[in-house]
Amino acid sequence: MKVNVIISPEVHEAYAEIHTDKMTEEIGRIVDMLSTEAAPVTARAGEELVVLKPEDIYMVRVENGDTVIYGEKRSFRSAKRLYELASQLGNKFMQISKSTLINLSYMDSIEPGFSGTLLLKLKNGSKDYVSRKYLPEFKKYLGL
């Protein structure tokens, strides 16, 4: 795909135009990516209420009924459900199991797991399995 970026002092808000002869899956993904704006997330660290930007979040996991948000070095608790955070965080996040969302920007390595799963390791040391249900979409993202 050919991409042009034009910088002009007359443009006050960035916008994108796509010229194509037909709508394809790739163009649909690009439109979704460009049109989704991730919103900040509020979470608790003890008694402290913290505002997290999506780029501060490595992984979100449901543990014993609580939604836990993992940052680089700290973890936080959220009152929101996993599906609510998935829609709020935008397209840089992918669900890899029934209980886990990961920030795709922070993937470090992938190892074969048990029963056809993959073990995904993040740059902060967090890890979780990509379940078989979510594996096809994950492999598609990786181009496998």
Rank of each mutant, 00 (worst) to 15 (best):
G143I: 02
A38P: 03
P136T: 05
G71C: 08
T20K: 12
E37G: 10
D56M: 12
F76E: 01
D56S: 07
R44S: 11
Y83N: 11
A86T: 02
R132W: 02
A79S: 14
S105I: 03
N91V: 09
L142A: 09
G71I: 09
P40V: 10
F93A: 03
S97R: 02
Y141W: 13
P9V: 11
V41Y: 01
Y15T: 03
G143F: 08
K53H: 14
K53I: 06
M33R: 14
V3P: 00
S75E: 14
S109E: 10
K22H: 15
Y70R: 13
G113H: 07
R61S: 12
I27W: 10
M94F: 12
K80F: 10
K140G: 10
V11P: 05
D21T: 15
K140D: 13
S75L: 09
N4S: 13
I69Q: 02
S131D: 05
S78M: 04
T36I: 03
R81V: 05
V68N: 03
G71Q: 06
V60C: 11
L89Y: 04
L122P: 01
M59W: 00
Y134D: 04
M107Y: 07
K73M: 12
L122F: 05
L144H: 05
S99Q: 05
G28K: 15
G71W: 06
L82C: 05
Y70E: 03
M59P: 13
K139Y: 01
E25H: 14
E72Q: 12
G65Y: 10
H12K: 15
S87R: 15
L118R: 03
T100Q: 07
E48A: 14
E111P: 04
T117I: 05
A38H: 03
A86M: 10
E10I: 04
H19A: 12
A14F: 07
L122M: 14
K92M: 08
P112F: 08
T67L: 02
A86D: 07
G90M: 08
R44C: 06
Q95Y: 08
K140I: 00
L119S: 10
G125K: 06
T67R: 01
L144E: 15
G46Y: 02
V68H: 00
H12Q: 14
P112L: 06
Y15M: 01
R132H: 00
S105Y: 07
E63L: 13
S99R: 04
R81H: 09
I102N: 06
V62T: 12
Q88M: 13
S126H: 07
V68I: 15
V130C: 07
M33G: 02
K53W: 11
I57W: 01
L85E: 03
E63M: 13
E17A: 11
V62N: 03
Y15W: 15
L34R: 06
H19D: 14
M94C: 05
M33E: 14
L120T: 07
K92L: 09
G28F: 08
A45K: 14
I69K: 02
Y129L: 10
E25G: 05
A79C: 00
S109A: 13
Q95G: 04
Y15Q: 04
V31D: 11
